[in-house]
Amino acid sequence: MRYNVSLPWWAYAVMGLGLAVFIGLVGLSIRRNHGIKRSLFSAPYTMWMILFTILPCILIAYYAFTDTAGNFTLDNFRTFWDSNSEMKKLVGEEYAASIPRGTVNVDTLVYSLWMAFLCTVISLLLGYPAALFMADRQMKLGASIVVLFVIPMWMNFLLRTIAWMSLLEDNGLINMMLNAMGFKSVRLMYNSGAVLLGMVYNYLPFMVFPIYTSLSKQNPSLHEAAADLGCSPMQTLTKVTMPLSLPGVISGITMVFMPSVTTFFIPRVLGGGNTMMFGDLIESKFLTEGNWNGGSALSLIMMLLILISLSILRKADPNGEGSGIV
C-alpha cells in the first residue's frame, strides 16, 4: 500500500524551523541553568496546538465571514436564517414573493436541539438509577460492574448502530417476535424514535460513568449521619446523595448533550434520510455541496451554542469537580 505523504516544500521548512528553534531554546536554557528548564518541555505541544487547533479554528471563522472570492460578507449567516435568499437573488425581485420564506436550517437546528435534549433527559433518567445502584456499597458489585459497562464501547460504534437496524427492520428480530406472538408488524425504523434510541444507546455510558464516579467518591459516613439525624432513606437520597452528585450529573449532561447535537451517523443510518440533524447539515454543506463558507458559518453557530451552554453548566459546577472522565 502506498500512502500519500506529499507536502508542499514550505511545510517541511516550517517543521524544520520549529524543530531548530526548539532545540536552540533548549540548548540556551541548558547553558543558563545547567539543566533543561522544565517549563520548556511543553513547547512542542504548544506549537502543535497552535498549528492544529487554534489555526484551524481561526480558519473556520475566516471562511464563515468570507464569500468564495475571499471578500468579507455576512451572507453565510443570512442564508442560515433564510435558506431561500440565494434562490431569491437568482430569480430576481419580482418573483421573490412566490418563494416561501423557508428556514430549513433553523428548523434543523431546533429539531437537533430538541432531540439532543430528549436524549439527555432519557439518559439521565435511565442512567442515574443505574449509577446509584452500581455505587451502592451494600450491593457489593465492586469495580467489575464498571468494566461491564465499558466493554460494549469497544465494539465499533458504527457497527453497533448498524446492529440496531437488524433488530428494528420491518422484517427484523423485534417484528419477527411480534409476529410470532400474533401481533402485527410495527414500523420501527426511519423515524425520530429510532434515531433517539440509537443516540441513547450510544451515549448512555457517558452519563453513567461521571455520575458513578461522583457517587462512589462520597463518604459513606455522610449517609449514616443523615440516617442518625432522622432522615428516611428517601430523604437521605434527595437531600444528601443527590445534591452531592451534582458535579457528576453536570459532567454527564455535557458529555451526552454535546455529541448528540452534532451526530450525523446515527440519523443517517436509523433515520434513513427522513430526519435531518445539524451534524448532517454541516457535513452535507461541506462534502456534498462543497460550500465551505456556508458550512463554516453553520459550524461557528454550533460552536457558539455549545460554548454558551457549557458556560451555563459551568456556573452550576464552578470548581469543575465533575470534569474527571474516568
Partner: peptide, 24 residues
C-alpha cells in the same frame, strides 16, 4: 469542548487551505 465534527472540519479546512493532500 469542541464537538468532533467541528474538530474534523477545522482540520480539513487547514489541509485544504495549505493545499496538503488529504490521506494517511
Amino acid at each position: 469542548t469542541m464537538p468532533d465534527i467541528v474538530t474534523g472540519i477545522s482540520l480539513m479546512l487547514l489541509f485544504i487551505f495549505t493545499k496538503v493532500d488529504r490521506g494517511y
